[in-house]
Write a protein that binds this DNA or RNA. Structure first.
Lengths: 191, 191
DNA sequence: ATTAACATGTAAACGGTTACATGATTTC
DNA sequence: GAAATCATGTAACCGTTTACATGTTAAT
């Protein structure tokens, strides 16, 4: 029966997937099979805007199986144990229902902006140092994403590639913003 | 004595401020006096990239006072109790030390991107719906930030205003990205 | 009178990270 | 033979949100 519902029977009904359940179901639909797989897929794709750790993934796989949204089957690789999961009908419906609803979570935590905010107007050097650090960060993330992009050629309109492009472009925009503002502070401060 | 250090005496030594301690100390330096003030300041400034709830602020004020980084004084408004806090020397040094170190926290959680990623390449309408929702979100946040900007006129190079400008520009960039990609999908899909 | 704003706080639940623990297989 | 990778899991901790609880004062 579905999770988190005071439900009457084994029928599918509207339920709220936990944040981790969303990424687990999505990654299973996307081709991942084991918990290890899911972690690896996440790290190479959604990590920069939606991460997941083993500490979340394995317990969530159990919960989702208990709720009947996925089914696991033991498939060892030699003597190395391995459980392969796949979506059930309920699981596929739950995923589709979530995908069809409006997104609600948009969260940002940026320590550089916080530091910038607390930097006094009379200390442009401190502000420039923070801007430089933030710029470097976005340049590094952008570089990592471009590496991934170079490895996976594909249809340009595929949403997977669109999201990767977003990461590359958003980080480039942020890096250029930092460059611009730092130049502004440096230029007017010393020139 | 400073918090979170197996320290020997009352002297200041390097300590790691908790995430909430940073925003509390910063807001006290920035002019906030009470816990209520801190919450109000946060909601009108750093909220879009660094939030704080009462459930964090009040316990943190106690911890920081116990650690000697701030000092509170009872200052009731009529019969309404009120505690005003101010930074101690140690508190000011701890804030300065944190401000001078490299920022490390850059976190993003975007449910729209996650949905986009899981949307099949053959379902452009679903992708467009997600893009539209994300665009609307950024337009709304941008509008709210512009309202705040209109209320607080000031020196354009003040980091406080720089950060607000960042919020406005970043949300505008994101909205325009969504518009562009949705148009691309719609144009090629039906044209 | 009523509502908004001022003001402080706690408890439970939730979600996530990190460290730890274990072991097999493949590649160098 | 060592290191990287595959593979699964738990426990403790950390940080945050939400709901609850209480009371005052100012504005309409």
């Amino acid at each position: 029966m579905p999770a988190q519902a005071g439900d009457i029977s084994g029928r599918y009904m509207e339920l709220t997937l936990t944040p981790t359940a969303r990424v687990v179901l999505g990654m299973l639909a996307h081709g991942a099979r084991s918990g290890y797989d899911i972690k690896a897929f996440v790290d190479r794709s959604t990590r920069f805007f939606w991460a997941a750790s083993y500490g979340q993934i394995y317990p969530e796989l159990r919960r989702l199986e208990g709720a009947g949204l996925i089914e696991g089957e033991s498939r060892p690789t030699g003597g190395r144990r391995r459980t392969e999961y796949r979506l059930t009908g309920d699981g596929r419906r739950a995923l589709g229902s979530w995908l069809g609803s409006d997104p609600e979570v948009y969260e940002l935590r940026d320590e550089a902006l916080l530091k910038l905010f607390f930097t006094a107007a009379g200390e442009p050097d401190a502000a420039i140092a923070v801007l430089d650090a933030k710029r470097r960060h976005h340049e590094e993330v952008g570089a990592r994403l471009r590496e991934i992009q170079a490895q996976i050629a594909g249809e340009p309109r595929d949403p997977k590639l669109m999201v990767l492009r977003y990461g590359i472009e958003a980080n480039a925009w942020q890096a250029s913003w930092c460059r611009r503002e730092a130049a502004e502070l440096a230029g007017r401060g010393s020139g």
